[in-house]
């Protein structure tokens, strides 16, 4: 069992943070890498990119939004409980170096994944501007943490309750117009990454995105996580999860993410029935 040592509820309890004891993974993990978690004997394998790693405490932190049966089960785990299985670190780490000016764009729980990458970019000597987007100010996460590792943080909300009233792409375009940007890192919902990439393509700014397709093993064995990058098939688990944002077939990725919509709904319904 992989014990939970800290649990926090964010964004009105819709997003959960778990700090988990996993010393071997913590020792090796680098920004951008993910783990696969299994909640119990009948659980499925769920990949999540790590939001934080504490090598001294031997822990890793995941932050997830409650969206389906598995994350609902995850959310029932309290401090002292644990996951049956956690395996990792998986995937290639983020390529971090001094690029010059880097804009880090995070949406939803993507901001949690973006945080260690942002810190890495900052520590490598980059000028870092971060843009965080969410529906309303109540769903904003990691604002303080991002501020600590960025030269500047800009907020966008869909309803204007904080920061810019609008999308992260509008904020990003303003920056791209005003100054030279050497790299954009965008992590969040697929449509956000798609529109950020379309925009940066216009400005010819290199863009890196982190993909989270459906996968089973996370080691290249099933091919379920295959994504089309520049017309070629790649496995997100071993070739990624980060890719050149300008090369990703986002529509294909969206389609594949919806492959089990019917089954997922059925699974959740059965869970509710059992509870009732």
């Amino acid at each position: 069992m992989y014990k939970i040592v800290k649990r926090e509820e964010l964004a009105h309890g819709t997003i959960i943070l778990n700090e988990i004891e996993a010393p071997q993974i913590a020792k090796k993990a680098k920004p951008g890498q993910f783990v696969i978690l299994v909640v119990n004997e009948t659980g499925e394998r769920i990949p999540l990119t790590m939001a934080e790693v504490d090598k001294e405490r031997g822990t890793i932190t995941i932050i997830y939004m409650i969206v389906g049966k598995s994350t609902k089960l995850f959310s029932t785990l309290q401090v002292g409980d644990g996951y049956k299985d956690v395996v990792g670190p998986l995937g290639e780490p983020t390529h971090i170096e001094n690029f010059g000016t880097v804009v880090c764009v995070g949406g939803g729980t993507g901001t949690a994944v973006l945080h260690p990458i942002t810190r890495g970019m900052h520590e490598a000597g980059n000028k870092v501007i971060s843009i965080i987007g969410s529906r309303t100010k109540d769903y904003l996460i990691m604002e303080e943490q991002m501020a600590k590792v960025s030269d500047e943080v800009r907020i966008c909300t869909d309803d204007g309750s904080k920061g810019r009233h609008g999308f992260v792409t509008e904020e990003l375009e303003e920056i791209l117009k005003a100054q030279k940007v050497d790299l954009v890192v965008a992590i969040g919902p697929v449509p956000m990454m798609k529109f950020v990439s379309l925009l940066t393509k216009k400005y010819d700014t290199p863009t890196m995105v982190s993909l989270n397709p459906i996968m089973i093993d996370g080691t290249g064995m099933c091919g379920g996580c295959r994504v089309t990058i520049g017309g070629k098939t790649k496995f997100a688990c071993v070739d990624g999860p980060e890719f050149d944002g300008h090369q990703v077939d986002y529509d294909g990725l969206m389609r594949r993410l919806q492959a089990y919509t019917v089954e997922e709904q059925h699974s959740e319904d059965c869970m509710f029935e059992k509870e009732a």
């Binding site: 009948t42 394998r45 049966k69 089973i216 492959a259 089990y260 089954e263 699974s267």
Partner: peptide, 25 residues
């Protein structure tokens, strides 16, 4: 891939979905 299909069915016991959480088409 046969690997994915069989792994879902065998290791993850998707044949017993939704008693097991892993789905299979």
């Amino acid at each position: 891939s046969a690997n994915e299909y069989l792994t879902r069915a065998n290791l993850m016991k998707a044949f017993d979905f939704p008693n097991y959480d892993t789905p299979i088409i």
